[in-house]
């Protein structure tokens, strides 16, 4: 991130609250994300990271507060929702590639249906994106024929096919065998340097430290720390963050 540039907010979350029955999953969460910024969201499991990410494209509805994406308010208005989903792409932990479609069709589907591109144009675009993630030769295969790492790279290409302004990643490498983690992180690193806005829920502290401009630490439904990687990893302010860091470091 170039700190000299004028920062333009792209996602604003103001006092976002969410309950699942009696359980308070998000408690007045506020954060503003700026264009071109790469944010790593970390924290213990069950702390609300996925829930927060999923409210940003309304896979989960929030109960209170406001979410504004690129000037559009996220609410029950379907038109707003369509506008936002077109600008916000998402990559899931379990890839969620369409199992009945080839790799090429997986990537080309949304541009054809949502952007109304012709099939030829959408497939040409899909081919370019598959080349970018190093999977052009796999275009005619089906998702089950690919390894987990390859599937996740396809999922990234599929999200990119909509030319999103923001990409949300929910633990993109957590379901992968260790030897496949790096190929996915490499694609994400390349994306981060291309200037796209990214919000990445991850347990890969090495990646967070190296690639992220900003670290958000979630705990029990609140943002406990919102700072730079340098300061987060060197001297976290809260005991909970210290405990979390020492725990994940044990894995290294």
């Amino acid at each position: 991130m170039n700190s000299d540039a004028v920062l333009r907010p792209i996602i604003e979350a103001r006092k976002v609250g969410k309950r699942f029955g009696a359980f308070h999953a998000l408690k007045d969460v506020s954060a503003t994300f700026y264009e071109g910024q790469v944010t790593a969201i970390v924290g213990p499991s069950g702390s609300g990271k996925s829930t927060f990410l999923r409210t940003l494209n309304r896979l989960e509805t929030h109960d209170s507060g406001d979410i504004v994406v690129d000037g559009t308010v996220l609410n029950d208005n379907l038109k707003n929702l369509d506008t936002i989903r077109r600008e916000v792409g998402m990559v899931f932990q379990s890839f969620n590639l369409f199992s009945h479609l080839t790799i090429l069709r997986n990537v080309a589907l949304a541009p054809m249906r949502v952007r109304k591109m012709t099939r030829a144009a959408a497939e040409a675009k899909a081919m370019n994106l598959l080349e970018r993630v190093g999977l052009k030769s796999q275009a005619a295969k089906y998702p089950v024929q690919l390894s987990g790492g390859q599937q996740q790279r396809v999922a990234i290409a599929r999200a990119l096919a909509m030319d999103p302004k923001v990409l949300l990643f929910d633990e993109p490498t957590s379901a992968l065998d260790p030897e496949m983690v790096n190929e996915v992180l490499a694609v994400m690193r390349e994306l981060a340097y291309s200037g796209i806005t990214m919000l990445v829920v991850t347990h890969e502290m090495g990646f967070a430290r190296e690639v992220a401009d900003r670290i958000i630490f979630f705990d029990e439904g609140v943002i406990l720390e919102d700072t730079t990687p340098e300061s987060f990893f060197a001297h976290p302010d809260h005991e909970r963050a210290k405990a979390f860091l020492s725990q994940v470091r044990h894995g290294f």
Partner: peptide, 27 residues
């Protein structure tokens, strides 16, 4: 049909009808 398939389609901006025709029905 796994719910993740529907979420992926919705996250890409497909309408509920498109999601049904392109993803849920064939699967």
């Amino acid at each position: 049909v796994p719910h993740g398939q529907v979420e992926a389609a919705r996250a890409l901006g497909l309408t509920p009808f498109q999601t049904f025709m392109d993803v849920i029905l064939p699967q």
